[in-house]
């Protein structure tokens, strides 16, 4: 059967499937779209009719020193977390790929554990632990906590790429006179480059969005999501829409970049 032939029944099925997909996506994206739309609304209340285009809320967001500081904190943390957790994730994945050892399954289970721990528990644990070692309330504390939860994402991404490396490629490098370090530098890392970049973006996004743990341990050094909650608790302001749109756009951009890199690396080979 070719695509062209088909009864009215087939057409109806196709149409209703499309309709269903549309409804699902609308349900998911409607709040985000309306948030973005109202962030440009001149009226201070999020209601129709639309009162006209305005950048007031964005101006106010950027004029607020607390929000600015939150944004800067979030960016600094994400900037530090992305390379750190990617490096740790890479090493964890490479150890799994390269070596056979007793307790390897336990090692892999432990390495992938952090994102499965409920964030509230993780937040409380981080707060008590970091409070003891005097790290609580500092940006370093948030960075450390975010590295813990985002490194497993990096590990999974890079591990998938390493699985495509094939058993002969590294051995071929050794065979041609490259020692283990030269092989890592000239063969393994370049081969994993797309996954490494993708994981830099993903871990940045994970950190940039993360609220719960940051809320527990950030103290005076609020990150942007923590500041948003503080704002929400005080008043309902259209500035929230503006911040939300900014955060959403940033995260989406990072995730899309990561996806594009991961996809391109798959399509390019073989």
């Amino acid at each position: 059967m070719t695509k062209r032939t088909g009864s009215i029944g087939d057409t109806l099925t196709l149409l209703s499937l499309r309709g269903w997909a549309f409804i699902v996506f609308a349900f998911i994206f409607a709040p985000i779209v309306s948030m973005a739309a109202f962030s440009f609304n001149a009226d201070r209340f999020p209601s129709l009719p639309w009162a006209g285009f305005s950048l007031t809320w964005y101006e106010q967001v950027f004029a607020d020193p607390m929000i600015r500081r939150g944004l800067v904190n979030s960016l600094l943390v994400a900037l530090a977390v992305a390379p750190l957790s990617t490096a740790i994730g890479f090493l964890a994945a490479y150890v799994d790929h390269r070596f056979q050892f007793v307790g390897k399954r336990l090692y892999m289970a432990l390495a992938s554990l952090p994102p499965t721990v409920p964030v509230v528990i993780m937040g409380v644990a981080m707060l008590t632990f970091q409070g003891r070692i005097g790290l609580s309330g500092t940006l370093f504390g948030i960075i450390a906590a975010h590295v813990v939860i985002s490194a497993p994402f990096a590990m999974v991404l890079i591990r998938m790429r390493l699985a495509e490396l094939g058993p002969d490629i590294e051995a071929a490098a050794w065979n041609l006179g490259a020692g283990p370090w030269a092989t890592l530098r000239e063969v393994v890392i370049p081969f994993c480059a797309p996954a490494i970049l993708a994981s830099i973006f993903i871990t940045a996004a994970v950190s940039f969005d993360e609220f719960m743990i940051a809320w527990f341990i950030s103290g005076q050094n609020e990150t942007l999501p923590v500041r948003v909650l503080a704002l929400l608790q005080g008043q309902v302001s259209p500035r929230i829409n503006a911040i939300g749109t900014l955060v959403f756009t940033t995260s989406m951009l990072l995730v899309i970049l990561a996806q594009a890199l991961a996809f391109r690396s798959k399509a390019g080979r073989r």
């Binding site: 071929a172 490098a173 050794w174 065979n175 041609l176 006179g177 063969v187 370049p190 081969f191």
Partner: peptide, 30 residues
């Protein structure tokens, strides 16, 4: 001796070419 200390290049059944390197850079590797 470790494999990288021997001068015994191997032509692999799977060829094992470095997929992200051009043909020339593959040949240059050793």
């Amino acid at each position: 001796d470790a494999p990288w200390r021997r001068d015994t290049p191997l032509v692999w059944q799977s060829y094992a070419l470095f997929p992200f390197m051009s043909v020339r850079r593959n040949v240059e590797f050793g």
